[in-house]
Simulated assay, not measured.
Amino acid sequence: MTEIQTPRLLLRRWSDDDLVPMAEINADPDVMQWIDDGSVRDLEQTADAIEHLEEEWDEEGFGIFAVELLASGELAGFTGLSVPTFLPEVLPAVEIGWRLGRPFWGQGYASEAAQATLEFALQDRGLDRVISICRVGNEASENVIRKLGMTLERETAHPEYGFPLRVYEIDLTEYER
């Protein structure tokens, strides 16, 4: 089982106990405002998404980690690697992404988990490049992207919803931990 421990977090595969807390995160309009069309997701949609995330681990050898706080055992959200099939113009590519519940914002958890995930991409999975796709205006995510040392690769539009996106990249052969 793939796990990564940081000073404050445990990045791990998904368990049945994660469904309800992740569904609560996905049901928050403030959390979801930057995701796809901004729609919240219910318990069933969250269960389907987690099932898909676990399938990607099996198919790709990487995926999205559940992010748990070491101090309390709470599920804070997720971070990890995925193939951004929704944006064919960037393929082949592996994207790093994250989604945390509102109580966990502004505490550096996204940056901490993302840094650990970049190291996983380089050291454990041998990837040489990772991208991050961010909706224009999502300043919190762009701050995390800057902390990761990623640079703007292109600006484009979401193929389904039309809103502007920025694609950032980092060459992991030059990545400095």
Score class of each variant (00 low, 15 high):
Gln107Pro: 02
Glu95Val: 06
Arg102Leu: 12
Glu54Lys: 13
Ala66Asn: 05
Gly101Met: 03
Val94Ser: 03
Leu75Gln: 05
Phe104Pro: 08
Arg102His: 11
Leu87Phe: 08
Val90Leu: 08
Pro103Ala: 08
Glu95Thr: 06
Ala49Thr: 14
Gly101Phe: 02
Asp58Cys: 10
Leu81Lys: 01
Pro92Gln: 10
Ala71Phe: 06
Trp105Pro: 06
Glu59Thr: 13
Leu69Gly: 09
Gly101Val: 05
Ala93Met: 08
Pro88Ala: 09
Ser82Lys: 11
Leu69Pro: 00
Gly73Glu: 01
Asp58Gly: 13
Glu74Cys: 07
Pro84Val: 07
Gly108Pro: 07
Phe104Gln: 06
Ala110Met: 04
Glu54Gln: 15
Pro84Gly: 08
Ala71Val: 06
Phe65Leu: 07
Ala49Met: 15
Glu55Trp: 09
Pro103Thr: 09
Asp58Ser: 14
Ser82Glu: 13
Ala71Ile: 05
Ala93Ser: 12
Ser72Pro: 01
Thr79Cys: 15
Gly106Glu: 08
Ala110Phe: 01
Gly63Phe: 01
Tyr109Val: 09
Ala93Gly: 10
Gly106Ser: 07
Ser82Asn: 14
Pro88Gly: 11
Glu59Arg: 14
Arg99Lys: 11
Trp105Gln: 07
Glu74Val: 03
Ala49Lys: 12
Leu69His: 10
Ala71Asp: 14
Leu69Thr: 11
Thr85Phe: 14
Ile96Phe: 03
Phe104Val: 08
Trp57Gln: 03
Ala66Trp: 00
Ala76Asn: 06
Gly73Leu: 02
Ser82Gly: 15
Gly97Tyr: 01
Gly101Glu: 05
Leu69Glu: 15
Gly97Leu: 06
Ala93Cys: 09
Ile64Tyr: 00
Phe86Lys: 12
Leu87Trp: 05
Glu95Leu: 02
Ala49Leu: 15
Glu68Lys: 04
Glu68Thr: 12
Val83Phe: 07
Ser72Trp: 00
Val83Cys: 14
Val90Asp: 06
Gly61Pro: 02
Glu89Phe: 05
Gly73His: 00
Leu70Asp: 14
Leu70Gln: 15
Gly73Ala: 01
Pro103Cys: 09
Leu100Asp: 03
Gly101Ser: 05
Glu59Gln: 12
Glu60Leu: 13
Leu87Arg: 06
Glu56Asp: 14
Glu59Ala: 14
Glu112Pro: 04
Glu56His: 12
